[in-house]
Design a protein around this nucleic acid. Structure first.
Lengths: 166, 166
DNA sequence: ATACAATATTTGCATTTGCAAATGAATGTC
DNA sequence: GACATTCATTTGCAAATGCAAATATTGTAT
């Protein structure tokens, strides 16, 4: 950046590339399952519960990366559709145990093979190792970002301090 | 799946891993730039225009992966904030040329170094080649999904046909 | 027991989103 | 040159989202 302009391309940046493929995948898969009356977030909730049942709202929010208040409402509509149950616990009534209903289980077990096939098709031109490398790198970056969160928050705060020093 | 249950874990699936890291990155970077009065979609628009100015709405929508009607409104609010301009062309008045204003340019050139640093920090524990492999795989999958779109749409339609044959 | 803090979820409210329909503008057809 | 047709963008409307505040329950200190 000899000339003062930072040398940068949005379209080469990791967040951009990540978002772009995420959006495209999401759109395609959404359309793929729309005929079942299920949205992508709904599928994620069902598949998460299929993997690990009886979850509390907070845990499910973490697992699905859906913001808690959004998820609270989503679980509400899914309950109305008869896909999940939501019972307050006897021992700790401030928490709630969310689970698949029989109907929800049947449905998600119909959708899972579709998801598997979808992923197969999406990566069929890539060698096995490339896909597993990709997945493991994605996981590591996710973890790393979790660790870095305080540091990044700090960088954010510092600017304020510089602009408006006490 | 000898027992009839598909062997599958949402949390090992590519769409899940992708979404999760995308969401976390987005949240962190959003917070990082919030002090500048800019949201993440706004940043993406500005950085896209910085890379390639005078874009039509449709092209900008494609480049940023933002749905067109959403983007139309976003550009509206950004124009009101004085960040972008939007002029209809003399030669073809049904298209519109969107560009950064001077103010928008100054702002995005302040944000870009932050984005660069953000990405550096996010991947600093990874060898260079791992990051470039990741990026190239993401790009390839994106392209591949584009190609596969018709095939996936067909799979979607087939189900309907089977259920309700003519 | 009473008040107070901590935890988990839900709700109010304003904003954003996305589909489908409407609008505005250019192009082809007769 | 009026006509439908296609293309690019915008808008109506209902639904989804996310922050902050409210609610409900549990734990703790006095």
């Amino acid at each position: 950046m000899r000339n003062g302009k930072p040398l940068y391309r949005l379209t080469d940046s990791l967040p951009y590339l990540l978002n772009r493929v995420g959006v495209r995948m999401g759109e395609l898969f959404s359309r793929r399952i729309a005929g079942f009356g299920v949205t992508l977030p709904m599928y994620r909730v069902m598949a998460a519960l299929w993997e690990q049942g009886d979850q509390r709202l907070g845990d499910l929010a973490f697992m699905t990366s859906i913001e808690m208040s959004t998820l609270s409402r989503l679980v509400g509509t899914m309950k109305r559709k008869g896909l999940v149950s939501r019972k307050r616990l006897e021992d700790n009534a401030r928490t709630v145990a969310i689970n698949l209903t029989a109907k929800g289980k049947v449905l998600v077990e119909e959708l899972i093979p579709i998801a598997m096939q979808f992923e197969d098709v999406a990566v069929r031109d890539f060698p096995k190792h490339a896909v597993s490398d990709l997945k493991s790198t994605l996981s590591q970056i996710y973890d790393s970002l979790g660790t870095l969160e305080p540091e990044i928050a700090r960088a954010e705060a510092e600017r304020k301090v510089r602009k408006q020093p006490r």
